[in-house]
Design a protein around this nucleic acid. Structure first.
Length: 470
DNA sequence: ATGTAC
């Protein structure tokens, strides 16, 4: 695919072959070179009816289902704009939650191995059922789908601050549980408060560097601060919802006269029965994802309290796989847009009215999970941010799981990480080897490019002290 | 990512 550089960290694909908008990729030359194949997916997304502005991609762009991971596209709801499950991905509402601990690294040191053992026991992980919260039955699952982490807190699993420091106040209002199928419900019932596998993790981290003191202070972060970062999604429930609704839309597309260059871009007008049904089910999965992270945070709180007498305070919780109807100004006019962010993080700028008051001046915390054994980042939204206020979400895979597992053994990798001072509590040696740092791109390069492109600003770098992996 | 293939 042909492309041209139109600014530092900004590349453009001219409209061609049915594209209704250009493609715009924010990346360094190096990151783009590694992802050239995915430009085809950027171009495919640009053919979607109602697309506004451009088909965007973040610096961590890589190949995904229909949309590239790192893809951002907005469609005009009032103008036949479509919603595509492939623009959200299978792990609906995958995201990151960050908490600060009220203890220093040195105070924690004597109890650290005990703390990690406790986290290892308290965090359900890996494939299949298992979760911290045993729901009373299908009725309570509906409450989770409608109330998200707000419902979890109401039931005693958290504190008031957890609600307003979570994106959407812990729950979106437009969840429609009727659109969540029986299989999705079955899968979701026994997984609330579980990590899953792959790049998902719960880490104990240390603030290694602060880039912006005032904003870090507003987020409650200081150098050498101990933090807990949780990266996980909506488990089997979100996966099943995606599967079910892709099938529905695949069949519905001809009725709306929509043609897409890739069947994985199955979609329907956002303002159609099929579009509304998916958006309602997706919102239910979004709420489930927040409740999932809420329950894992509670589990971590219990372990921190028991092992170190320490308290954990929520900084923020934000998804990087979600579509939302948001109001944006386009060519001077306010328009309701369906913004797909797939492997891309919302990054609202200072002053945005959807931010809680105590974050209004600093901007939205943007949480970027690193790869095991590498850094994670806290960023903030900036005025004038492009791509409907979006930025990167992390580092994509560079090696397949199989390739990764061939480069090292799990025991060898664990020894290496422990020698670097990182405690590891893996589910199995094999799953650990698949997550070796060499299997991922450099998250620092992704963050530098995102900042260079004017999508966000760096606030702090966090490094792992201990990691719990599925 | 995912009861890692209906």
């Amino acid at each position: 695919m042909e492309y041209a550089q139109e600014g530092p960290y900004r590349f453009r694909v001219e409209p061609q072959d049915g594209m209704r908008a250009p493609g715009v990729v924010f990346a360094s030359e190096g990151l783009l070179r590694d992802a050239e194949r995915s430009l085809e997916q950027v171009a495919n997304v640009a053919t979607l009816p109602g697309i506004v502005g451009a088909s965007y991609a973040m610096p961590d762009i890589h190949w995904g289902y229909g949309f590239p991971i790192g893809g951002v596209a907005a469609t005009d709801v009032a103008d036949g704009g479509v919603i595509s499950p492939g623009g959200v991905g299978f792990d609906i509402s995958c995201g990151v939650r960050l908490l600060t601990a009220d203890c220093g690294r040195r105070e924690l040191a004597p109890a650290f191995q005990e703390l990690m053992d406790g986290l290892g026991r308290a965090v359900p992980r890996g494939a299949g059922p298992g979760g911290v919260w045993k729901l009373s039955g299908p009725g309570e699952l509906e409450s989770v789908l409608e109330g998200g982490s707000r419902y979890a807190v109401e039931e005693g699993h958290g504190e008031e601050r957890d609600v307003w420091r979570c994106e959407d106040g812990g729950a979106v209002a437009d969840a429609d549980v009727r659109q969540v199928g029986e299989r999705a419900r079955e899968r979701g019932l026994a997984q609330v408060g579980s990590l899953g596998s792959g790049n998902h993790f719960l880490e104990v981290q240390r603030v290694a560097e602060v880039y912006d003191e005032p904003v870090a202070a507003a987020f409650g972060l200081a150098r050498d601060q101990v933090c807990v970062m949780i990266h996980c999604g909506s488990r089997g429930l979100g996966h099943q919802i995606c599967t079910d609704h892709v099938r529905v839309m695949d069949k519905a597309m001809p009725r709306y006269g929509v043609q897409v260059p890739d069947r994985q871009l199955a979609c329907a007008p956002a303002d159609s029965p099929e579009g509304r049904d998916y958006l309602g089910a997706m919102a239910a999965a979004a709420n489930y994802g927040r409740a999932n992270r809420q329950l894992l945070a509670q589990a971590a709180r219990r372990v921190f309290h028991r092992a170190a007498g320490a308290r954990l305070t929520l900084v923020y919780d934000v998804s990087h796989n979600l579509a939302k109807v948001e109001t944006h100004t386009v060519d001077g006019a306010r328009r309701r847009l369906c913004v797909h962010r797939k492997g891309a993080t919302r990054a609202f700028p200072p002053g945005h009215t959807d931010l809680p008051e105590d974050l209004r001046e600093a901007g939205q915390p943007v949480l970027i999970p690193g790869t095991m054994g590498t850094a994670s980042y806290v960023l903030t939204g900036v005025a004038g941010g492009d791509a409907f206020h979006s930025t990167c979400h992390g580092a994509g895979r560079a090696l397949s799981r199989h390739q990764a597992a061939r480069t090292t053994g799990g025991k060898q990798l664990r020894a290496r990480l422990e020698a670097e001072g990182i405690a590891v509590r893996p589910l199995s040696p094999r799953s650990l080897a698949e997550e070796t740092p060499e299997a991922y791109k450099d998250v620092t390069a992704v963050v530098e490019a995102s900042e260079g492109a004017g999508l966000c600003r760096k606030v702090a770098r966090l490094v792992p002290l201990g990691v719990v992996k599925g």
